[in-house]
């Protein structure tokens, strides 16, 4: 199983989608048709098709008659589609909690509650509009070609010290998100900057080492596994775990100072047409914790308070208007300027 991003970009022609002017970019799209078909559920999601495929099939099995039109887009494109362009989808799934929060805050989301959503812990939903169904840590992955188990840094300070010690070893060999392109990368980076001053030092060090910038976790994992990169910082842990099932050559490190845990959320846009289907899907996702088969098939860790409490370094990102702060035009401009100043040193 491979995770595709840039390699399989499908810029779909207008004929494929009802709306004539498509400005947002769709990376991939698959239609799971049901026979007989009662309704079509149109989902826009940041989750790769390969990852989400088992969930979609299981949902369809449980709700026969619902065809699923599944489009994959980046977090920023998803935001653009719904926020700026009024694209019509029945369900939007994204791990960029801040963008999802902005959609809900600014009135692009309709409310829903049911017995299934009531089983979610309070920190896993917001306003009855955002429903989290996975908790995914942002991790460091290191290449086996560069590290033996006892040389792997366990926290950010150790990582910074290591990078400073041997710049010649790591120059051009480290990777992280390009926060300008990836909404998810931006979210993790901003939360990092809130949590620790070490973040900016790390960015400085990475900048000096000519860090490679990526749009997506999948590519970073590939490059670390193949030995092209020594390490990649802030990789989506769930992708790394599921990649590890088929690929050797890298280790996953949950840093001990803190680990940001992102919640992948689903929401129903106000202009959804198949609201019933979307609600069925949210109910289905809310109890994902009870579907061991799906969580192991997808590698997506379902919402579970117990497993969060096992590691005290886990910091689940809290929903709330605080997430809007880094989306502020001025704040974002300043943050990106600082980030670029750190990473691109002349």
């Amino acid at each position: 199983m491979r995770f595709h991003c840039i390699t399989h970009w499908l810029i779909l022609a207008s004929a494929l989608i009802a709306s004539p002017a498509i400005a947002f970019e769709i990376e991939n799209r698959r239609i799971y048709s049901a026979d007989p078909e009662r309704s079509v559920l149109r989902i826009i999601s940041t989750a790769d098709l390969n990852v989400f495929d088992p969930i979609l099939r299981a949902f369809q099995e449980q709700n026969p008659g619902i065809s699923i039109d599944y489009s994959v887009a980046g977090t920023t494109e998803l935001m653009k589609a719904i926020y700026s362009e009024g694209a019509i989808f029945d369900l939007a799934i994204s791990s960029a909690m801040d963008l999802q929060t902005k959609l809900a805050n600014d009135g692009f989301v309709q409310s829903y509650s049911s017995a299934a959503t009531a089983t979610l812990p309070t920190w896993a939903s917001w306003r009855n509009q955002l429903f989290a169904f996975t908790q995914e840590p942002a991790v460091l992955i290191v290449s086996d070609a560069f590290f033996t188990p006892d040389t792997i840094p366990q926290n950010r300070d150790a990582l910074i010290a290591l990078l400073r010690e041997s710049p010649e070893r790591f120059a051009g060999r480290i990777g992280t998100y390009d926060v300008r392109r990836s909404g998810l990368g931006y979210l993790v980076a901003t939360q990092d900057s809130r949590n620790s001053e070490a973040f900016w030092r790390l960015m400085e060090v990475m900048g000096r080492l000519d860090a490679k910038l990526y749009c997506c976790s999948g590519d970073m994992i590939d490059d670390v596994a193949s030995g092209k990169l020594a390490l990649a910082y802030n990789v989506l842990g769930s992708y790394a775990v599921s990649q590890q099932a088929t690929t050797n050559g890298f280790h996953i490190v949950e840093l001990t100072d803190f680990v940001n845990v992102m919640l992948r959320t689903a929401l129903i846009p106000v202009n959804a047409q198949n609201v019933e289907g979307a609600r069925d899907m949210i109910d289905f996702l809310s109890v994902l914790d009870t579907r061991q088969d799906l969580t192991s098939a997808t590698g997506l860790p379902a919402i579970n308070t117990m497993s969060l409490q096992e590691n005290t370094a886990f910091r689940p990102i809290r929903f709330g208007p605080g997430l809007l702060v880094f989306l502020d035009q001025m704040k974002r401009r300043n943050f990106l300027r600082n980030w670029e100043n750190s990473l691109f040193q002349e």
Partner: peptide
């Protein structure tokens, strides 16, 4: 520099 706490 919008403070995080101001909105949170």
């Amino acid at each position: 520099e919008l403070p995080y706490a101001a909105l949170s």
